[in-house]
Design a protein around this nucleic acid. Structure first.
Lengths: 356, 356
DNA sequence: ATGAAAGCGCTAACAG
DNA sequence: CTGTTAGCGCTTTCAT
């Protein structure tokens, strides 16, 4: 069943009805000055009345670009992260629509690797540019697109890529540095970090932010106090959280790479009758809707997903239109959202280690 | 900056390298039997090695369809609903990708009406079919697409449309009927319904499900016990909830058209020191992630957004390929999720009304 | 079994 | 100012 109905008019039809050549109609619509104002008006009026919309295919063929911008959605993660995607997509789409482009979403489903999907998108000239989310420290998507010289904007950063590329990121290093300093001021000395096994760049930066602040105060984050879990294995979180809470001395403050982790940690702490924030301060990142409803509310950082999306979209449009020299990578500050999951360090307890 | 780099090979290039005509290469790739097995293999091998992907534009032009399926994202709602969108989009995209199609997302931003966006999509032949979400009782998008004979699947239903169309919906009527019967069994007699001002079809069906069950038990839902709020005005919810809780007699059970509303109601009840579920039972719909984290957890219905999306996508593909006779509308059951926000009716209290 | 030619809708280069 | 011509990449008759 093709699109039937009152068939969409094409240039040919308009031109024959107007008694003009196709070319003239085309140029009139494009607003070229070399067509008389009178004709231009007449053509425009007719086109509007007939609801003429140029065929994308025709345009694509002659211009060489598609008018589409691609987003490859990574493997499906947890529900929490899907909330991110929804907002991000809406933001992107809005911004692209404003620039006359459309967003196409492709999924790297099951066995198809993301790079293959990208290759398909790029080689089929289905997209003039691409948005990537969830950067990995070493990200083969980035390498591939740089090799192919395809315009793209990365939400996040990669590590150790020599060539220039356009990225947009939230400054997790500064954020967790700030959080750590605040907690140190509140008397905390024993810190923990709950993060992902996968080499997600944001987790890396948040960690070095934390470690940097500790070092500045003569403290450190021992390896034992870092627990990591696969982002695809919900069950693992519980074990990891458990392990952190069994340390001796037990951390009085645990920073979590994301709110999703923070919430799980909160649950595990509750099961062990560890009071948050009296016995344990927890800090997350992302400001998920659930974080406000957990009890206590999760203290976290907000990065306004919609704003990020809009910026990313604008950067990509500029990159496509004006080239890489026209656009600077951007690092934005995350807003600290103080809620109930952090507080002063508990009074010092005798620790096996400290005593022995 | 167009896509440069090791330029994507086109048919012309492949054919000249192989010493064959464009036609032959095309047919070899299409697997036609009238090209010798040997050549076919040779062509295929070369195409694979060069990473050939047919140009979408060329295909579109000759076939008349785009290979794209459109989703018009409605006006931006609250954060809660965006969580729905994210999951829905991922589900759609996965299913469409499986059928070799891609999903394009267009936004009805700011002043552009959704129908205009649809018109653009349809007339520009940018999509072979369309997915619509959040049906309104009288939905001009549906009318328009039916008029234009454009294949579409509606997530939800409209009321009073005579022509056949393809829809997929969750049976909110059955669900809230079930919930009401359960609450009646628990002793509840005074019910309330918190819903939206906008004529969203799902809210309508959930309401008549509730009303039907009440009627069957000789009860009714008085107009005063129905409060509605605009889905774009978060503040209004509080006033509406307040009003419901000020009724005399105060409802002992309030059903909410969505979890988003239920959560707001829960907050307002907490402020008024109304204990849930001892004094008030609350039931929502959607099973948002936050609903599990509210305290008490919201009793609700789950409709598996991802499954819905996959079904919708499959229905649309079938509709496009085989026509409207090949596909039946579908009504699926929602799963009841019992949590802590409902319970037995409180012991009867003297009501001004009952006493007077 | 293979190739030549036409045409999908559009725009750009070139004539008149 | 307007029209003719060519060509973007592909598939589909129609010849050979």
């Amino acid at each position: 069943m093709a699109i039937k109905g009152r068939r969409q008019p094409r240039l040919k039809e308009l031109s024959s009805e107007l008694g003009l050549s196709i070319t003239t109609v085309s140029r009139a619509l494009a607003g070229y000055s070399d067509v008389s104002a009178a004709t231009r008006e007449r053509v425009r009026e007719m086109a509007a009345r007939r609801g003429y919309v140029p065929s994308r295919a025709g345009r694509m063929l002659v211009s060489g670009n598609s008018g589409f911008v691609g987003l490859v959605v990574p493997l499906r993660d947890s529900h929490f992260i899907d909330a991110f995607l929804g907002e991000f997509i809406v933001g992107l789409s809005e911004a692209f629509t404003d620039s006359g482009r459309d967003l196409t979403i492709t999924t790297a489903a099951r066995d198809r690797r993301e790079v293959d999907v990208l290759r398909h998108l790029v080689n089929g000239q289905q997209a003039d540019g691409v948005v990537l989310t969830r950067a990995l420290s070493a990200d083969d998507r980035v390498t591939y697109l740089l090799d192919q010289q395809v315009p793209f904007v990365l939400h996040g950063r990669v590590l150790g890529e020599g060539r220039p590329y356009v990225w947009f990121d939230t400054d997790g290093e500064a954020a967790f540095g700030e959080a750590a300093r605040m907690l140190i001021d509140l008397g905390h000395r024993d810190f923990g970090y709950l993060t992902f096994t996968e080499p997600l760049t944001f987790a890396h930066f948040r960690r070095i932010g934390l470690e940097g602040a500790l070092r500045d105060h003569g403290l450190q984050l021992p390896d034992r106090a870092i627990a990591s879990v696969s982002r695809f294995d919900e069950a693992e979180v519980e074990r990891a959280a458990d392990r952190l809470l069994s340390l001796d001395p037990r951390p009085t403050a645990i920073l979590c790479a994301t709110d999703g982790l923070a919430i799980k940690l909160l649950e595990v702490a509750a099961k062990r009758a560890i009071n948050v924030p009296a016995d344990l301060s927890i800090i997350g990142f992302d400001n998920l809707p659930v974080s406000a409803y957990a009890s206590p509310g999760i203290t976290t950082f907000d990065q306004s997903i919609q704003d990020s999306a809009i910026h990313v979209a604008e950067m990509l449009v500029k990159l496509i239109d004006e080239g890489i020299d026209a656009v600077e990578p951007r690092l934005v500050k995350a807003d600290f959202i103080a809620r109930g999951s952090h507080g002063p360090a508990p009074p010092a307890r005798p620790s096996v280690r400290a005593v022995g």
